[in-house]
Amino acid sequence: MQEKDGMGEISPPPPAKRQPPTVRLRRLAAELRHLRQEAGLSQAEVTEKTDVNLATLHRIETAKAKPQLRTLNALLDAYGVTGNRRADLITLQKEAKQRGWLHGFEADLPSPYSAYIGLEAEARQAINYESLFIPGLLQTEDYARAVVRGVRPTATDDEVETRITARMQRQALLESDTPLRLWAILDQAALSRTVGNDAVMRDQLVHLSRQAQRPHITVQVIPFSAGAHPGMPGSFIVLKFDADSPDAIHIDSMAGGLFLEKETDIQQYNHICEHLRAIALSPTDTAALIASLREDY
């Protein structure tokens, strides 16, 4: 039922609230932008090759609009995309409005175009809670190799090295002129469990200490003395983007990587982050604890 204003006229309905882009749509936008750049084409050159309107192309590449299938095919033709990669992008287009996403971690997942890696590269900040491991962005190569071999005992040498290469490449996000801001919260168990051997752990803790001194990286440890806490059910990452783009929550599991996008889930995990930061040691006390544990190795 429409409302009448004070003059007896029918007031127009309020404008519909624009839905924020889903993880799928953001990934599709990022991949299309990367494909254009790989092809060495400007947006203007793409419009000449495809007849796709410049404003439309900009909206597609910034996840403000879902491309129609014929538009997507025209762009993929211009970029020379074929085979499985093309099929994957068409699937993304068809499912772009769906929220929540369980993406299986197959052997070839760690590529520049995998779901999580692509989103992480678009984020401006990551809040990473880990209960059992050092966060991937802060791992040394030897520690990462020991983790992958331990977690995936049936993986081939090639599969292990593919994952290690991807993990090391991800760390470039911390080295750019506008680096990713990382807030890492670790349970003390992640520091106390020997991964690899004593030498691997000693080098890892030295590296963690050095990284924690950088202005865009904050490290806090939740000591054993804190008792039970909300992070104990498992690790997660909150990715934060520009102000007009909602956060994305990523949870790793043996079944795959689960993206959470509901507003209630985002609020819950941000609240958990606040609680974990409050009960964790300060960055200064964390540095002292890491130095103490390092002596054990």
Rank of each mutant, 00 (worst) to 15 (best):
G136V: 08
Q171P: 07
L182E: 09
Q211F: 12
T194Y: 04
E106K: 09
A146G: 15
G136H: 05
L89E: 02
L109D: 10
E141C: 07
D177S: 11
E141S: 10
L138F: 05
A107T: 14
A144D: 07
T194P: 07
E159G: 13
H103E: 13
L109Y: 12
V195H: 03
A189C: 02
I217W: 00
P153S: 14
L92S: 12
L119V: 12
A184W: 00
A189Y: 04
R149K: 15
A166M: 04
G104T: 15
R193E: 08
P112E: 00
L174A: 03
V160A: 03
T218E: 06
L109G: 07
G150M: 06
H216D: 08
R181S: 06
R152H: 12
Q139E: 00
Q204T: 12
L182R: 14
L205I: 02
S192H: 11
L109M: 12
E159T: 05
A184F: 02
L174N: 09
G136R: 07
D203K: 02
L205F: 07
R152Y: 12
E122S: 06
R193L: 05
Q139D: 04
D108I: 01
E161C: 00
E175I: 03
D187C: 01
M168G: 01
P179K: 09
A190Y: 00
R202Q: 10
S111Y: 01
G118M: 01
Q171N: 06
N128K: 00
Q139K: 00
E122G: 08
V200Q: 03
W101P: 05
G100Y: 13
R99V: 13
L137E: 08
Q93D: 08
D157I: 12
I185C: 06
I117K: 05
L174I: 10
V151N: 03
Q204M: 05
D198G: 15
